[in-house]
Amino acid sequence: MAIVIIQSSNFSAEQKSRIGERVITALQQEGLNPGSVVVLFRPERGDIYLDGMLVQAQAPVAAQPPAPPAPKAAAPIPAAVVPAFKTKARRSKPELEDLKKDLMFALQDKGSLSSFEAQVALDLKDCDWAPATLRRLFTELEEAKLISKSGQKRGTRYVWKGIVNTPQSTPIVKLVKADSETDQA
């Protein structure tokens, strides 16, 4: 599976759709199956300027801790609020692809997950079909070499092989190449 990550907060939904379609088309022309390409749009985390010899990274805004989860009501959620794909006997391909993207985001944020933790992170713990579907998705991600599997049975953990999204505790250092005039002085 090919993953293309575009970090920018300046795109509208229409622009993301056009750009995503162009990226998938370009990769398809290079021989990749369009169903195996994921284009992820994320907000940018810092400004980096590259032009010739100058590299400048500005310190990011201090990361705010995530808000604590809202307490869940004891009453069951009305059927109108529950997404339709959770109650259907079978999920469509686009619904499964969205679920796979959400699973990849959860793995990138946490670094590793068990099947139970993935069910909680994706809010699927009340879905009877979730364990089998997540096993299939984990297998697809493992075959695509995006995750590795460790442990057995209930101790199985799935570890994200790429960069894990952890908040930066130290500011990014500002790098600037000195002008040639000041080097000679």
Rank of each mutant, 00 (worst) to 15 (best):
I163D: 14
D109F: 04
A80I: 11
K93Y: 00
P94S: 15
F41C: 11
A74H: 05
R91Q: 12
V120E: 10
D179C: 06
D183V: 14
Q58W: 04
R91H: 02
I48G: 13
L122C: 06
A73W: 09
K101F: 06
L107G: 09
E14W: 04
V82L: 09
Q184Y: 09
S115E: 12
G155C: 04
K174D: 13
L124G: 05
M104T: 12
L54I: 09
A121M: 03
L96M: 09
A130Y: 07
F41E: 04
L175C: 07
N33P: 06
L124F: 12
T25C: 11
P60S: 05
K93H: 02
G46W: 13
A70F: 01
W129V: 14
G35R: 14
W129Q: 15
P78G: 10
R91F: 00
L175P: 07
A130W: 02
V37G: 07
S36E: 14
I24F: 09
P43S: 12
A79E: 11
E181S: 15
P94G: 05
A26L: 11
D123M: 05
P167W: 05
E140I: 14
P83M: 06
S92P: 00
T139M: 01
N165A: 13
L99H: 02
L107I: 10
Q184G: 10
Y49L: 05
K153A: 13
G31W: 08
S115D: 07
K174I: 08
P60K: 01
R90S: 12
I24Q: 08
P83E: 03
F105V: 06
P69K: 05
A57E: 11
L113K: 06
R136T: 12
A2M: 12
E30G: 06
Q15W: 07
A79P: 02
V82N: 00
S115F: 09
L103V: 01
F11A: 10
A62K: 08
G111E: 07
M104A: 13
P34N: 05
A89H: 06
Q56T: 13
S92C: 00
P66L: 15
V37M: 06
C127F: 07
